[in-house]
Each structure stands twice: as C-alpha cells, then as structure tokens.
C-alpha cells in the first residue's frame, strides 16, 4: 500500500505554504498553528486528503478554504485550543460531482475567551456529500459561537449534507451558541442539521469521583471523551500526547 504524502504546516512555513495544490493522497497536518493566516487547499484529483491537527495561539484569525475537484474526498479533524478572541473560519467548496467532505472539529473556550468557529460547506456540484460535526466545550466564563452553513443551490440535486453542533458547558458562567444552518434551494437532497447545548452531566462527574478521581481529573476525562469523536481519528501518538498535555494545562 502506498503511503500518503505528508504536508506539515507550522508557524514557520505557513506564510509560504498558504496555497497548496494536492494531486495525490495526502495527510495535511496543522502542527500547533498559532498565527493568523489565510490558507487555500486545492484538491485537484480523485484522491483522499486527511486534514488534521491542533490550532493554538492568542487572538488568531485563521481562514482555511478547501476546494474539492473531481471525486476527491476530504476528511478533516481539527482541534482548536486557541485563546482570547480567536476566529477560525473554514470554507469547504465541493466543486465537482461525487466529491465529499467529512469534517470533525473540537473547540475549547476557557477563561474569558470569546471565540467564533465557522465551518461552511458549499455544494457547487450535483451528487456531492458533506458531514460536518462540531464539538465545543466552554468553561470559566468562556464564550463560544459555532456557526455553520450548508449551502445547496437550485439545480444542485442529489446532495447529502448534515451540520451538527454539540456544546458542553462545564460551569454556569460560560456561554455557548450554536447556529447550524441549511440553505437549500431544491427538493432533491437529503439534509439534516442539529444543535445541542448542555451542562456537564453531574451523574458522570459523580461516577468518576466515586472511583477516586479528583474533580480536575474527572473533568479532563469527560472532556477528552467528548473530544474523542475528533481525537480518535488522529491515529498519531504525537498529536494525541499534545492534546492530552494541552488539556492538562487548559483545564
């Protein structure tokens, strides 16, 4: 089996690698990105591209545009641990038939952060599929707005699309807002969207505490479990360790 090409984006090369054309199966790794940038990724062949990684930094403005051509498949798994007034904006354009995107994101908003995370999918060709799942955790007065629009124009038929957002509030001072939006102009599609926002489950917390875990350890396990929908797809020990260490420091 031929290994995927790996493109590692980091703070040092981000300015020069801000427009990438990918023509063969590839892993694109966001390695602790912590600066503002606009990145364009063109996927030009019938290939699989995996985008994964961690976003860090203070007050960053990161815009990622992904253009899918032919029958390309994009799988994204991103964790956003950036701080303060960060704004992450992702646009996925499915430009040719049978291209599809699955995008899972996990966002932590803590200690007075006011963050916005947006992920839009534009179905620009018939028979394109997209599944977007976004998980947020807010704590210590953290404020998180998760936006997402799936757009299917008239005559762009036979598309499947879903936008789902879940936010967990660790304490009563935090605020989470979710707006998964469908803009659909024809009837021949399958589409769904959903949002749920809830507090940390006290029964889960009691269960873990009753086995001797401290409140901090228990909350960390619960948040890791919540983010596991994204983390489990990393399949990269270095990234997994980074996530665990970052959660230690942020919780």
């Amino acid at each position: 089996m031929k290994n995927n090409n790996t493109i590692v984006l980091n703070n040092d090369n981000l300015s020069t690698l801000n427009h990438i054309s990918v023509a063969s199966n590839s892993d694109i790794i966001f390695h602790n990105i912590s600066k503002s940038e606009e990145i364009i990724i063109d996927v030009i062949n019938d290939i699989n591209v995996f985008i994964k990684g961690i976003i860090l930094g203070d007050d960053i403005n990161l815009k990622i545009m992904i253009n899918c051509k032919n029958k390309s498949q994009i799988t994204g798994n991103l964790i956003d641990f950036s701080k303060n007034n960060s704004n992450i904006y992702i646009d996925v354009n499915l430009n040719d038939s049978y291209s599809n995107a699955t995008f899972n994101s996990a966002i932590l908003s803590s200690i007075n952060d006011k963050k916005t995370f947006t992920i839009n999918v534009n179905h620009n060709a018939i028979s394109t599929d997209a599944k977007v799942s976004t998980y947020g955790v807010c704590k210590d007065n953290g404020n998180l707005l998760i936006l997402g629009t799936s757009d299917i124009k008239e005559n762009i038929i036979k598309c499947n699309t879903s936008q789902n957002v879940k936010i967990m509030l660790i304490d009563k001072n935090s605020v989470g807002i979710a707006k998964p939006i469908l803009k659909i102009a024809n009837d021949d599609v399958k589409a769904s969207h959903g949002a749920s926002i809830g507090q940390l489950n006290e029964d889960h917390l009691f269960y873990l505490l009753s086995r001797g875990l401290s409140v901090l350890e228990a909350k960390k396990l619960i948040v890791l479990g919540y983010f596991n929908n994204v983390i489990k797809n990393f399949k990269d020990d270095e990234l997994l360790n980074d996530v665990s260490n970052l959660l230690d420091s942020r919780l």
Binding site: D203, Y207, L209, S210, R211, G212, L221, I222, G225
Partner: peptide, 29 residues
Amino acid sequence: SVDERSKKGLFLAMQNPCEVPGVINAEFL
C-alpha cells in the same frame, strides 16, 4: 468530598451505572 471518601476505602457499585461517552474503560480504571 466524594473522591476523598473513595480514596479512604468506600466503594459504591451503582444500581444504574451511567454511560460516559468517549471515556475508555481501561484508561478510566
């Protein structure tokens, strides 16, 4: 606190043990 009681030797096998999504059984143990 609950965790201190547990560390001092109390254990409760619950009537309806809750499901904790994403937390791996072995890691938790």
